[in-house]
Design a protein around this nucleic acid. Structure first.
Lengths: 257, 257
DNA sequence: CCAACAATCCGATCCCATTGAACAGTTGTT
DNA sequence: AACAACTGTTCAATGGGATCGGATTGTTGG
């Protein structure tokens, strides 16, 4: 530690604390004061006044004994998501793809080295999922993440791996740096990325990047299904073709608007 | 004012201030320190340290000279939206309806007396819109808002009007209290609400409420289009039937899950 | 080369976030 | 009924840190 770097001298303590409290609240899916205070190891009264303050402003709901995040936060998040170029361009095409395949189709953007879901639609046969709009995932173990990584500058990819590592999620997760680089090269050749049970067992995904006119990836499109539904030619060529076509059409629309 | 009520004695000042700063940033669609400081009439240095703190935590992007809200806020907003019972139940049905009609279909929930869009999809012919997920609108001038008001307890409706008023948006906006009550009675009879250019000229909407098992409205479904496309029987019976059917099916699914 | 404008840093001041302990409701157990 | 074991909420003291003006640095363009 020595000089503990220059420490967050400009960081307002109340803000980082209040963020921690909000994050804790989200992770617990709503909670009471005591529960949250214990979870975060903070005094009850501190937690209480933070929650109260946010609730007063309408950003938390307080149903008697428990607080929860309110829809008002969408003012911030929703504003940014629907302004994201890929979302406005993608919606229609994504909805159609979901309808056509009956599976889940998601749009992802890169943010601080992780993938953020910015839009999703699902057909009737889509698997239940642990992700929602706003969820963040490691990029090395998802088709969409790899699709984006493949088109990021090499330096950038290195720094992302340095920061987030390559944690194992399943048997199939790529945890070796070199192996990942090989895979990314392959993806650049095929223009399509596959996830063969690399993040969740029993789930396969097919993704394609959406590039801007400079070839920089501002997002990716991914379709996911169970290994039962998605195998053989469907996994290797049919879905890849579908996804690639849709991605291209989004790309076209995005660059001409 | 006299004794200025009991003032927000428990409200943490830094929090209400930081919220003001975030809201200002959103309203300006991203801004520099100086611009924002002037807008809010706060010292530059204060604004700076707030922005810096949020940026350090990854909730703001700082592209050199301007800050903007980042996708990370979706962690909060998106989580709540996709957990909202109406959204998870509605997605598939809403997407299908949008595809079928080629118009925009939106899901709205009530929040503090205003309507909040929590989900939307659009078909190929949908009008451009000024709303996005997270936008808040007055309820008296939208079909979905009126659909919800119609099924809220009368006391509640009164308080909402007291707080937010009935501001005029177009020639057709209902600005008279009694007239609104009549309309709400009508809506309860038909189970469908219409917006005939009451919020935006040239735009008509058809909405139906989604009620929980107690008859309490936890949201509404609305479809909007231009007066050119939406008129005569389409406006008066075809779309109302479609919306009502979809709303009922959502309601069914919501209560049995 | 120099104003004019940004963002950022810095240091003194005094406000207020923090805190533990006291208070007030609610639940269910004896 | 009375009680214990939980909650969420209030309160007053205190010392840390948010604040704010002014200094500094960096960039633009005349």
């Amino acid at each position: 530690m020595a000089q503990t770097s220059n420490r967050n001298q400009s960081g307002i303590k109340t803000i980082s604390r209040t963020i921690r409290i909000l994050q804790g609240l989200r992770e617990l899916g709503g909670a009471g004061v005591t529960e949250l205070a214990e979870q975060l190891d903070l005094p009850k009264s501190t937690v209480h006044s933070h929650l109260q303050s946010w609730a007063e402003e309408g950003y938390l709901t307080s149903n008697g004994d428990t607080y929860d995040i309110s829809l008002s936060f969408l003012e911030f998040g929703g504003y940014k998501a629907s302004n994201h170029p890929i979302v406005s361009a993608a919606q229609i095409a994504v909805d159609e793809l979901a309808m056509e395949t009956d599976d889940r189709v998601q749009v992802i953007a890169e943010r601080r080295g992780k993938g953020v879901y910015v839009y999703q639609t699902q057909g009737g046969r889509a698997l239940p999922t642990d992700t929602h709009v706003g969820s963040r995932v490691h990029m090395h173990c998802t088709a969409s993440g790899k699709a984006i990584l493949a088109y990021l500058p090499e330096k950038r990819v290195e720094r992302i791996i340095d920061e987030h590592g390559l944690p194992r999620r399943t048997q199939n997760t790529i945890t070796d740096r070199e192996k990942l680089y090989d895979e990314l090269a392959e993806i650049r050749k095929e223009e399509v990325a596959l996830d063969d049970e690399e993040r969740v067992e029993g789930v396969r995904c097919v993704a394609a990047p959406v590039l801007d006119s400079d070839g920089y990836p501002f997002g990716a499109l991914t379709i996911s299904s169970s290994t039962r539904r998605l195998w053989g030619d469907t996994f290797r060529s049919e879905y890849p073709d579908l996804v690639l076509t849709t991605a291209k059409s989004i790309q076209l629309q995005a660059t001409y608007s």
